[in-house]
Amino acid sequence: MNVLLDNLPLFREGFIGTLSLTAASALIALVLGVVIAGCRVSPIPPLRWFGAAWVTLLRNTPLVLLFVVAFFILPKVLFPGMSPYVLAVLALSFYTSSFVCEAVRSGINTVDVGQAEAARSLGMTFTQTLSLIVLPQATRTVIAPMSSIMIALTKNSAIAGAFSNAELFGTQKDLSDMGYNILFVFFWIAVAFLIITFSISGLFRLLERKLGVAR
């Protein structure tokens, strides 16, 4: 208990850091993932190839390698002077976007073709078919995988701590350097992560219940 109470500011900083990294990366990953999924299912070959290459490349690269590229190559070659926070968010969101893309794509693919054909034969436009028929059904199937993607993102954000970001892994490292027993530190860090991941899965379960329809 002492480890926690004596270092409450450090823990708070780490907790908020993890939350903010996760939230920012989640937002960008969702937008990016949906855009890439749009590319992958589009009737335009170059965009489809781009989407496929994006997903294959990012899903099969270790996240640590992406962090290394973001921190040591990106500033040198493309845009110098970005803060570690921005670089970490970029690495995390690019990595996660490939998983979001695959979840969205498989969500769209689970919608029966007959549904869209029926909508078209009723005279619905493309936008109407998409927003009234396809997306509402796809969203419901996407929620469950999205929940685990977001939980994975939360856990992956720990790597940012090794790249000069303030979050829970950084807290653990600092406390371990200060000579606290690593097992007690581990206990409290684990509790902090459990709080975040349980909140996320709870949120998604709530969403699932809200959106759920008897089919």
Binding site: K155, A158, I159, Q172, S176
Partner: peptide, 11 residues
């Protein structure tokens, strides 16, 4: 499963 792998490895 709930704790990030990096944190476990570090411990």
């Amino acid at each position: 499963r709930a704790v990030p792998l990096l944190i476990t490895i570090f411990v």
